[in-house]
């Protein structure tokens, strides 16, 4: 459905949707500001990185000069405004360990995480919707029970452990998966980076070997990540469809003997789209912040591992930057969901 058509339906009334979106974007900005402030205060409250940076043997003089050069001798509010000002200018600071701009480091690591999250999202969307609908249709059968049991398992198992078990089975025992050593097997690399997404770049460069190698590498981590979030998606789809299947309009459709697949995929699914897209948006944000565990187990060079390192070393700027990215991920996913709801659900428009 194109926007022009949707606006026509509403009788040229563009004010409300635009206002609604502006409100949403405004809320996202407010959220970002809040997150930056909280992250700033929390990192400062957890101690200064100075003593870790200089090591145990440093004397008072070097500690003081470092505190000064990092601006930590200034009042907290001044540090805060300085930081906020630089963030507004797109400068996320520099890492005290690598001496490189955080934006540069993030731009190298974010595509790895996004690629993994998107691969997991594809799995979650397809499997989640299929299993959710089937379980709702075959409600109270053995199949339904199996799906519910699978959901219980997926929701309760820690990702870290699940990843290790999958590595143990597929890499160690049966040698079906490659060594969990990041995005591509050692010794192989692409001649250049275009989007940063290995799979996409491999297709663009026509490099079959790299594509297959990268696909093999991403398989297990993507499945691990997906398994952790599948239960929520399945359950939402299941409950929504179950609800819809019991509504009068579906019964009416049944009475008109409209084919079953048509009832399900056209009439029922359409009404379930908004709740489903909401849970998917939520899942996206969740995955973005939960890749940490999967990245650690599969040595995936994404922002999760970056965040862990930064946390251990109390590297202020990278910690806040990762928080900002995760918030943005959440916020943008919700925003997309709101726009999507605006398009498919006439009730939202009014």
């Amino acid at each position: 459905m194109t926007p022009s058509r949707f606006f026509k339906i509403d009788g040229l009334n563009m004010k409300k949707p635009v206002l609604y979106l502006a409100q949403r974007i405004g809320f996202l900005c407010l959220l970002l500001w809040g997150i930056i402030t909280i992250a700033f205060i929390l990192t400062r409250a957890l101690g200064t990185p100075v003593y870790l940076l200089v090591g145990q043997q440093a004397d008072k003089e070097i500690i003081e000069s470092l505190i000064k050069s990092m601006g930590l001798d200034r009042p907290l509010y001044e540090q805060y405004f300085r930081y906020f000002w630089s963030v507004l200018h797109g400068n996320l600071g520099i890492s005290r360990y690598t001496f490189r701009p955080v934006t540069q480091e993030l731009s190298q690591r974010l595509p790895a995480t996004l690629e993994l999250v998107l691969a997991a999202m594809i799995l979650i969307t397809i499997i989640g919707i299929l299993l959710g609908i089937s379980a709702a249709v075959y409600n109270n059968t053995l199949f339904d029970r199996c799906v519910q049991a699978f959901c219980q398992f997926g929701a309760s198992v820690p990702l870290f452990w699940l990843g290790l078990i999958l590595i143990y089975i597929f890499f160690y025992l049966f040698k079906l998966a490659p060594a969990p050593l990041g995005r591509i097997r050692p010794g192989l690399s692409l001649p250049k980076t275009i989007t940063g997404f290995l799979l996409v770049d491999a297709v663009l460069l026509g490099d079959r070997e790299c594509f297959l190698a990268a696909l093999k590498q991403i398989m297990l981590p993507a499945v691990t990540l997906a398994l952790g979030s599948l239960p929520a998606t399945i359950r939402i789809v299941y409950l929504t469809i179950l609800d819809i299947l019991n509504t009068p309009y579906i019964n009416t459709a049944r009475a008109y003997s409209i084919p079953r697949w048509r009832i399900l995929f056209v009439y029922a699914l359409r009404n379930a789209l908004v709740p489903i897209s909401t849970v998917l948006a939520m899942t996206f944000g969740y995955l973005l912040s939960n890749t940490v565990f999967v990245e650690a187990v599969f040595a995936w060079p994404g922002i999760g591992n970056y965040a862990i390192t930064a946390m251990y070393t109390m590297d202020y700027d990278p910690i806040i930057a990762v928080t900002i990215v995760a918030t943005l991920g959440y916020g943008l996913a919700y925003l997309l969901n709101d726009i999507f709801a605006l398009i498919v659900d006439p009730r939202v428009r009014r």
Binding site: L164, I167, F171, P180, V297, I308
Partner: peptide, 13 residues
């Protein structure tokens, strides 16, 4: 030097 953050993964490797 391959960065593998999880010790259990290093062990399996």
């Amino acid at each position: 030097l391959k960065v593998v953050p999880a010790s259990a993964t290093r062990m399996l490797l």
